[in-house]
Design a protein around this nucleic acid. Structure first.
Length: 588
RNA sequence: GGACCCGUAGCUCAGCUGGAUAGAGCGCUGCCCUCCGAAGGCAGAGGCCGAAGGUUCGAAUCCUUUCGGGUCCGCCA
């Protein structure tokens, strides 16, 4: 049920080539592309068919192109075809073909752009996975939005998507969190100890001193009285650490879920590291790798040029990551015998594969860039190369206010939480703005600019286009679908109108290209272009009143234009839905 | 020392996985409000795509080298 006009026409081109040159191999035909030319003056579409097929066919590219152009000119959708440059075939589609997209859009509604490209392959998209040791801050925000939008994009592209949050609830950091919450609990009980006196009792010293744990301490006191700290004095950790830690992790996850909900970010599954360990998944994964001969005892070379002072050669349990493209083999066990984070994460990936996923996608912060190769190596090893891991790295976001970077210290109170950010500029502005850059490019998030109502703010610009479209439809008395379906679309002859239709028709292709590249930001740029085309059409009516959408004296023309406006609103909504942004009915 | 990411108009960034004369917004210059919304519109100037080689019909895009900026580098996650 593909509505991708480019795919339709490409099929025509491939068929024409196959007819002219029956002997061409399938992999040659596969290289044929049909895309919009960079310069619209060249036509609606262009194909490289002659360039990629001429040599195998034993013809000069120009001769191949001439013959192909002649054949394509016979196709019912194509108005004219010609050759250009080294062997391109450019062609114009009949206006009727373009206009025919409008009823297709109106019939499909927001499902317009849905693709079968993903062939329902099962893909696991893991994103956020913030440690459950505190509230979410803006550093997590970009990955959350990019991951969520990417999941929506892949779903629209025809993949069967699982959205995963991996909870790092095992290991030293959550132990430290338990101690920190215990301190707040002691405080709630009225302990005579000072924070520094308590810190001296904590292995490694007290961490997570932010006040956000105080409510957890109070809750613990209400639930347990002083049972976990008789007389409001520290007791043996064996008595309380597991209880307090689990309680605190649960409380932090509740906070995080609230934040994610406020941002409109959703997950299907929350996978617990501790649960994976308890279920024996780690052991199974290690056994699997060992059976493949990929685990050994060995000593690593020190990193060149930057040897840590306390470096000493040490024999450890290593995974043969170098067999799968990594730079060095990677340790699986710490010196105390417990597993490294990497070992547990291997189990997480084994679990994803066991659950039947054929593709894996991760959204990580750029600080995890050095971790990509080893994880890709592990996935390749676990699946014998059958499953591919794609990692989308998100670079740092710098929050700017009044031209100055907002300081981001880890100390409580002085850093911006995600909730602060949403309250300041609104959910939709946060989401849209986070998608206005390639994720691997650094970004300044300007608090002043994203709430500005002007053309340079893409959030506003796109929303405004939708609001305008809706305003027109309201002014026209909300025409019914059936009425619009009867519109005489051949009355749409203005260049600005046909340009707008071409832009609308590019949406399915945009979805597919963006999904393949795992680049949701392309949707934001597409919507900006579409909004520009719509605003242009609107503004034509300013200079020439006969070009207005609504003209009472011309009901047929009005109806055709309303169909175009309605289709525009539909596609904007379809695009915003991928970004997780709500369309607005009017600007305020 | 090594790995990964980024260098494109004065500024902020796109560039559809190798295509044609490299695009948009801001800023700049000049025009345009009796108007379904001027919180705008139209037109114009502005580029050796960091640099140098290479691959091929063809390179901003792929490879090598190099110069800048960022992230990171054995028992943190």
């Amino acid at each position: 049920m593909t509505l991708n006009i480019f795919a339709t026409i490409r099929a025509r081109v491939v068929a024409a080539v196959a007819t002219l040159h029956p002997g061409l191999a399938a992999d040659v035909l596969a290289r044929i592309q049909v895309e919009p030319p960079r310069d619209p003056a060249h036509g609606d579409m262009a194909t490289n068919a002659a360039l990629v097929c001429a040599k195998p066919a034993g013809l000069p590219p120009r001769a191949f192109a001439e013959a192909l152009a002649a054949a394509l000119a016979e196709a019912p959708e194509i108005a004219q075809a010609g050759t250009a440059g080294p062997g391109f075939v450019n062609f114009h589609l009949r206006d009727a073909v373009w206009r025919g997209q409008i009823p297709a859009i109106l019939a499909a509604g927001e499902a317009y752009g849905d693709s079968t490209l993903g062939e329902r392959r099962r893909v696991d998209v893991e994103y956020v996975s913030a440690n459950p040791t505190g509230p979410m801050h803006v550093g997590h925000c970009r990955g959350a939005v990019v991951g969520d939008a990417l999941a929506r994009l892949l779903a629209k592209g025809g993949w069967d998507v699982t959205r995963e949050y991996y909870i790092n609830d095992a290991g030293a950091q959550v132990q430290a969190l338990g101690w920190a919450a215990y301190w707040r609990y002691l405080e709630a009980l009225g302990t005579p100890l000072t924070e520094e006196e308590f810190s001296a009792l904590v292995p490694g010293g007290l961490q997570y001193r932010g006040e956000y744990l105080s409510p957890v301490g109070v809750a613990l006191a209400e639930l347990n009285g002083d049972a976990l700290a008789p007389g409001a004095m520290p007791a043996d950790p064996a008595l309380w650490l597991d209880i307090v830690r689990d309680f605190t992790v649960a409380a932090m996850m509740t906070e995080i879920r609230v934040d994610l909900a406020a941002l409109g970010v959703e997950h299907d599954v929350f996978i617990s590291e501790a649960a994976l360990i308890a279920a024996g998944t780690v052991t199974r994964a290690m056994t699997l790798l060992a059976a493949k001969g990929l685990i050994y005892q060995g000593v690593l070379e020190p990193p060149k040029g930057k040897t840590p002072e306390d470096w000493e050669p040490r024999e450890q349990t290593l995974f043969r990551a170098t067999q799968f493209g990594d730079d060095v083999d990677r340790p699986l066990r710490k010196s105390d015998g417990s597993n490294t984070y990497f070992a547990n994460d291997i189990a997480n990936h084994a679990d994803k594969i066991e659950r039947g996923h054929q593709e894996l996608v991760h959204v990580w912060g750029a600080d995890h860039g050095g971790y990509v190769k080893r994880m890709a190596a592990a996935v390749a090893a676990l699946s014998d190369g059958a499953v591919k891991l794609d990692v989308v790295l998100c670079q740092i976001v710098r929050v700017m206010k009044d031209g100055e970077p907002v300081r981001m210290s880890k100390r409580a109170g002085s850093y911006i939480t995600l909730r602060d950010l949403i309250e300041e500029v609104g959910r939709d502005a946060v989401r849209f703005t986070m998608l206005t850059r390639k994720s691997d490019a650094q970004m300044d998030f300007d608090l002043n600019a994203v709430v500005e109502q002007s053309r340079e703010n893409p959030v506003f610009y796109v929303q405004y286009a939708h609001a305008r479209a809706r305003s027109v439809l309201r002014a026209a008395g909300e025409p019914e679908a059936a009425e619009l379906a009867e519109a005489k679309l051949e009355l749409l002859v203005e260049p600005s109108e046909l340009d707008l239709i071409r832009k609308l028709a590019a949406w399915p292709r945009t979805v597919e290209q963006a999904a393949l590249a795992r680049e949701p930001h392309r949707v934001a740029f597409y919507l900006h272009d579409l909004a520009a085309a719509f605003h242009l059409s609107w503004n034509r009516g300013r200079d020439d009143s006969t070009l207005r959408f609504i003209r009472e004296e011309e009901p047929e023309s009005t109806r055709a234009r309303l169909a175009l406006v309605a289709a525009t609103a539909v596609v904007i909504r379809s695009g915003l839905a991928v970004m997780g942004v709500d369309p607005v009915e009017e600007m305020r």
